[in-house]
Design a binder for these strands. Structure first.
Lengths: 239, 239
DNA sequence: CATATGGATTGATCTACATCAAGGTGAATG
DNA sequence: CATTCACCTTGATGTAGATCAATCCATATG
């Protein structure tokens, strides 16, 4: 089991500012869980007795309607946080989009720790406010953007998040793995997977992106792609 | 100026659990502001040196794209909270949908108070988590629901929120004011106002709702209307 | 009292995306 | 090495909702 100081979650997540005693306490309630791509972490409505931070891989939060329509409502990249203190059950399906490792904290002790360690609560508030902003940006995408703009936006979001985690070859080109299936992309964007496929092809034919293999994406000119998102040129950040 | 203890925001908002000293401190940094329907409280990007709680009326948070497409991303009813501690500018247009009174707290002293008063931060975290859940429910609506389901959902949301504030004649019928213009509804739902109008008319013709005057709505059978939202029958809550 | 004015409604038409359907591709498996 | 399986692509067609345009209605205004 890794030391928390080596754990990627220190970048953004709850224990980033902990030291000494607090860190020791966190260690005690901490454990790692691994999932294979496609596995479900918890179903909506199921008991969820932990909160967690993504270490490696990608997890998604989704809602499902009775007739099966699905909408993704959260995309968790490394260092992102999942789970709501003060709630027994998960409100969403949590699914591993890729192979996934999560750093889990048992909920009850975590909540106790929160009471005695104000900065954990503060950190959590900051992170929740960030997530709320991301959700609102996402709402604009869902409510008002065209299919083409949605695809361009998603690619930019992933590229940006990816770039912030590890520096990519900055010879103008941006190269990275698109870790979502067409179906997952369609659930993110409120489209069908056919429309996703068509629009990705369209961007490829126009030279705005290249695809190498099935999942690797190359963006020759990031700003050109940004133009297609519909966002303000200097626009903030999503997710 | 009202006493905080008489202020509607005590129901849900930040000062709900304050007493003695804290309340006195809150009083000192508190002031009220009134707006007429249609007025803008702040524009996205503008300096916002306060946080606030809605006392009476309705405020909206919206995002605008360069070409004018608009999406509402927040609907603030009495007792709801606006503003992000730790941020200088507003990320959204804040607009008075009806005549509006807000209870404002100057930001800097509010943040200081937060540092010394853990339960304010805790309360804020709870509220932010609730808002995040609401935003995610809203994402499902925007991404996957039909126009008809969107309208039914919005009417149910307002009815529910309204009912929780003051008890309505519970003789089966639910009667309340729909405080949004067709345009505001369309911005909430990611539709055009024409589509909103058509779908409201459709629900009326089918007897699922009645309209009295321009804004008053009567729901003869709430459960019947709920059926049209696409949500699980026991479904939670929005906004 | 005539007349703006700011919603709201309703109709006709268009189109972006969904739906239905048929292959294609590449890694995994016996 | 053939076969399967999961995923992706592309085509043909359908449709929900957008767009464009006219009219209505209630309140406000000189």
């Amino acid at each position: 089991m890794q030391e928390c100081k080596d754990c990627p979650i220190r970048h953004r997540a709850v224990c980033a500012r902990c030291e000494g005693d607090e860190l020791a306490q966190l260690e005690q309630i901490k454990y790692y869980r691994s999932f294979e791509a496609g596995q479900t972490v918890v179903w909506a409505g199921d008991k969820m007795d932990f909160v967690a931070s993504v270490v490696t891989g990608i997890a998604t939060l989704s809602q499902t309607m009775e007739d099966g329509r699905r909408q993704m409502v959260g995309l968790l990249l490394p260092s992102d946080f999942a789970g709501r203190p003060g709630r027994e059950t998960s409100a969403y399906d949590v699914t591993a989009a890729t192979d996934l490792v999560m750093c889990c904290f048992r909920k009850k002790p975590f909540e106790n720790l929160m009471l005695n360690t104000p900065h954990i609560g503060q950190r959590l508030l900051e992170m929740t406010l960030d997530e709320l902003d991301a959700a609102r940006e996402w709402m604009l995408l869902l409510g008002r953007k065209t299919a083409r703009e949605k695809i361009a936006s998603l690619i930019c979001i992933i590229a940006r998040r990816d770039a912030s985690l590890q520096l990519n070859a900055a010879d103008g080109e941006l190269r990275f793995d698109l870790p979502l299936t067409r179906e997952a992309m369609s659930e993110y964007l409120g489209l069908t997977l056919e429309t996703v496929s068509r629009q990705v092809s369209a961007l490829r034919k126009e030279g705005l992106i290249r695809t190498e293999g099935k999942r690797q994406i190359v963006i020759p000119d990031f700003d050109a792609l940004l133009e297609e998102t519909g966002d303000d040129s200097d626009g903030g950040f999503l997710i």
